[in-house]
Design a protein around this nucleic acid. Structure first.
Lengths: 317, 317
DNA sequence: TTTGCTCATGGGCAATTACTCACCTTCACC
DNA sequence: GGTGAAGGTGAGTAATTGCCCATGAGCAAA
């Protein structure tokens, strides 16, 4: 008998057990009884079928591709948190936009009962996400802005998101009463030395989780559009190897922060270390591709929320 | 938040949970943590994904088709036990023949520690199966033959299998010291009235499991080949609506035993009732198709061991 | 024949999963 | 604004599953 079982191959039995378990939905006890073996042996056959890749599981849902892409990105860049949303709303019922996905992730953090420090950057994408937040009561948390809220002309910077966030989330908020960009490194240092600013800077440094937008450079990038940088300054930066920016901090194609250049004048809190905390970027679109890839490569962020098409391109590159 | 979750659809969440569970191999606890929900909710989403057929499981093994066919036969004929073996040995490594599969099933019963009565019919297929049995010690069981072992010319009927079985299985065996076919109903009744035969008949009636071959009729059928019936007798039977035989018992296309005809002269033990016990037929091949279908239809058997091609045809018809 | 190795097996136990039961929210209808 | 059905939630609990270990069979080398 043993001889015959062997010649038929253990894999055949594994296939049979796997079929009974996964397709027919029997329990391992039933399989054991049907095959005349012990429950443990049935369990071994089932796990053998899985280990030998006899069992193929497929998910019939548009979101499946997104999850695959997310897993790919997680593996490729060592990310802690990935969310890929479907690109084409018409493709299925899952028209979760980037903004909604970002809001969901923010809410996931805010729902925690233990107090956390949540830091936010700036940008249109992030603003859209924050606008999707549902009202919540979160007295235990603190929310801090990484970027100044004064625009280049002295008015409020529209895409500073912390005030939008304050509308929805009842929590302690800490804006940065600074411009985004100072006129000089000295001015930046002076401003940062104010007591109020120093405490906010310290708070930002200890953020448990940070949500940031990722800005592309070039004359159509947000820094130019919003008037923070003139086009010729921008072109100089790009020619100098800049690939993108987060909270105004410029980085090259390897995700290394540029030394000198305008980074000396950026008033933003330094981007929290992605070794110690979660730094989640929200970005999507072909134009941002190089910036996102660089930020991932340099581990400036360890979490990403993007869309399907962008995820594909990131994995391809 | 609730609103957004709803608009995204519960199915999306179910798909995500199902993917994480089945594809990514996470536990439900991990899924719950990742999705920010309770473990119970994660469990519900996973089972929802299964219930909604979002999760498709496929078995990459030649045996998968056989199992599908077996399930189909089980459903169609209300069978207790089905085994379908691959038809084409070249198709894969699983060249389990009918004989080996039958032997495996017999051994499965004999391996039981509680005492059982196992009855066997006759036929080439069954003989081949019994010849595949490995030696076993089964003092607790009793094995009884349903058919006589004396051929039409007085010699031992070759395809009576109980002696082959006795070679491999150490157990108490009860052959039937009778011809297969008597010359008249009266002779049959007289023979059956012998004390020794009566006890064997009684034993056969209480069989826990019965293995039988299924014979097709016609001039090429085993009854003619082995000389039990002349060709003209056979033709008369076929024209009278006979579709097949089990242990010599003739039945029509609905699986009803024919009254009169040669059934009056059959010396075999009546086929045990398939209501109370397992009656497993071994048969395969296009020529036997009508006989098998009739036996199944009439519930003469409630178990079947056959091959892939035959199973397909049975399901088609 | 003995020794040492590999591997399948079943028992036992901890982790994981499925199910049931109240309770709660939502929504449609009155 | 009340009211009941539908469906979701968490707690508790039973069932199921995964894994470790000791055991013994089979087999090749010494």
């Amino acid at each position: 008998m043993a001889k015959r079982s062997d010649s038929h191959g253990r894999l055949d039995d594994a296939a049979r057990a796997g079929w009974l378990y996964y397709v027919a939905g029997r329990t391992q006890d039933e399989i054991a009884a049907a095959m005349g073996i012990s429950r443990q042996s049935a369990q071994r056959l089932v796990s053998l079928a899985v280990a030998e890749r006899l069992i193929k599981v497929r998910l019939d849902h548009p979101i499946a591709a997104c999850l695959e892409l997310g897993e790919g990105l997680r593996a490729k860049y060592g990310l802690r948190q990935v969310e890929v949303v479907p690109s084409d709303p018409a493709a299925g019922s899952t028209t979760v936009g980037l903004a909604e996905a970002g809001a969901a992730e923010i809410e996931r953090w805010l729902k925690r009962s233990d107090p956390i420090v949540l830091a936010v950057g700036t940008g249109r994408t992030l603003k859209a996400a924050v606008d999707q937040l549902s009202p919540m009561e979160c007295p235990q948390h603190r929310i801090v802005s990484l970027t100044g809220n004064i625009g280049p002309d002295g008015s409020a910077a529209y895409y500073n998101v912390i005030f939008s966030m304050a509308d929805a989330i009842k929590s302690r908020h800490f804006p940065m009463p600074l411009p985004v960009l100072c006129s000089s490194a000295e001015e930046r240092d002076t401003l940062h030395d104010q007591a109020l600013v120093r405490s906010t800077l310290a708070l930002g440094a200890q953020a448990d989780v940070t949500f940031v937008g990722i800005g592309e450079l070039g004359p159509e990038g947000p820094l130019c559009i919003d008037g923070f940088l003139a086009k010729d300054e921008m072109m100089t930066l790009v020619e100098g190897g800049a690939a993108g920016e987060i909270c105004g901090w410029m980085f090259d194609h390897d995700g290394k922060l540029l030394s000198g250049s305008i980074n000396d004048r950026v008033a933003s809190v330094p981007i929290p270390s992605s070794d110690a905390s979660c730094v989640i970027g929200l970005a999507q679109g072909r134009r941002k591709l190089k910036a996102i890839a660089a930020a991932l490569k340099g581990r400036l962020i360890n979490g990403l929320i993007t869309d399907e098409a962008t995820a594909e391109q990131l994995l391809r590159g």
